[in-house]
């Protein structure tokens, strides 16, 4: 046997015989503390829902199908942006460009149909492609040329924001946006907003890539220790590049959803979409699989913030509450992630 590749693992039949003390191998940590640590945020989300649904001042409005749908629909784009952020975050890089790339994609799609009269199908392809290109450029800068992702993505976000403003002149593009697209943003199927279904579909796709493909596992390996990943034979440059390219792809899709939802592309630079996405991804690291970002955790994180803000608004809290809540949730999530990492300090046996 001259060729042993990592793809042809040889398993234990020729591994050494069992030695010494048999090792107790049990399942996950099922202690009370462990369960609270892993499901705390989910329990809190459920608690919030129950609280606002029962609270006399908000209950009726909160429970209404209209409110539920509006909360969900308003979060569909935000969730998609957060999902885009997951790829680079899993691979250990920040990406501050997801909001700006989303905004760019939405302007791209709107301009294509409105200014150039291109068919919707082509416009969507162009918009998504713009996201992929932006992501690929970032991927090259970070993975190939070793530029700090913090700086590179912030630079890209600023650049795109400026480009959007230059193109739109500060005006929104709302003429001739096809109904087929805006229907996606406003209509429902079986009582569920279409855009929520679209976001759910994307979430499932991202979940599948993260959890059920080698690439997903490679992303986490690179994010955990790039040097060790290189030394177990992974192509770290390629994996980092892909994390940004995929981020661009999903941001591009988010841009199309944004246009569908708003019915117009604004001159906004998209930075206001970045922080809720960061919050959700950080919240995801303190739930279920504690310590690493996950799709399910991100969904829980997005819903947690949305439900809380909606409930607070219904009980009459002023409009700045949303921003304060987002900021506080981000800080708390980052803090808790830090503490749980420190708490993981070996209570060595």
């Amino acid at each position: 046997m001259t060729d042993v590749s990592p793809d042809s693992a040889v398993l234990p039949d020729q591994a050494p015989a069992p030695r010494r003390t048999p090792v107790a191998v049990v399942g996950r940590d099922r202690s009370v503390a462990g369960v609270i640590e892993r499901y705390g945020l989910l329990l809190l989300l459920v608690g919030m829902v129950v609280f606002f649904a029962l609270l006399p001042s908000s209950g009726e409005a909160f429970r209404s199908a209209a409110n539920i749908n509006s909360v969900l629909a308003s979060q569909a784009v935000g969730l998609t942006v957060a999902l885009a952020l997951l790829f680079p975050m899993a691979a250990g890089s920040f990406d501050f460009s997801v909001g700006a790339v989303t905004a760019t994609s939405s302007v791209m799609a709107a301009a294509a149909v409105s200014h150039f009269g291109l068919p919707l199908f082509v416009a969507i392809l162009l918009a998504v492609a713009s996201g992929v290109v932006a992501g690929a450029v970032l991927g090259l800068l970070v993975a190939r040329y070793g530029i700090n992702p913090f700086i590179a993505t912030l630079g890209m976000a600023t650049l795109l924001g400026g480009a959007i403003f230059a193109y739109t002149n500060g005006l929104q593009i709302s003429k001739d946006i096809p109904e087929t697209l805006t229907d996606l943003g406003s209509l429902s199927v079986f009582g569920i907003p279409r855009i929520v279904l679209a976001a759910a579909l994307i979430a499932v796709a991202v979940w599948f890539v993260m959890r059920h493909t080698p690439l997903g596992r490679h992303l986490f390996a690179v994010g955990s220790n790039a040097s060790a990943a290189h030394l177990v034979g992974l192509n770290v440059t390629r994996i980092k590049f892909l994390s940004f390219a995929l981020s661009g792809l999903v941001s591009g899709v988010a841009g199309v959803l944004l246009l569908a939802r708003q019915g117009a592309a604004t001159s906004d630079n998209g930075m206001n979409m970045l922080f809720p996405a960061l919050t959700a991804v950080f919240l995801s690291t303190i739930v279920i699989e504690v310590g690493r970002p996950s799709v399910l955790g991100t969904v829980i994180g997005v819903l947690f913030v949305a439900v809380s803000v909606s409930g607070l608004t219904l009980v009459g809290a002023p409009s700045w509450v949303s921003q304060v809540f987002n900021g506080a949730a981000l800080l708390i999530a980052v803090g808790l992630a830090g503490i749980s990492r420190r708490g993981a300090d070996p209570a060595r046996l």
């Binding site: 591994a15 050494p16 069992p18 010494r20 310590g291 993981a344 046996l349």
Partner: peptide
């Protein structure tokens, strides 16, 4: 999990973070 056992790696669970091992 089988490799963990055959190599005599002492751990409470295969899910334990790597840093928790000696």
């Amino acid at each position: 999990t089988r490799l963990i056992r055959t190599f005599g790696i002492r751990t409470a669970t295969p899910n334990a973070p790597f840093t928790h091992l000696s």
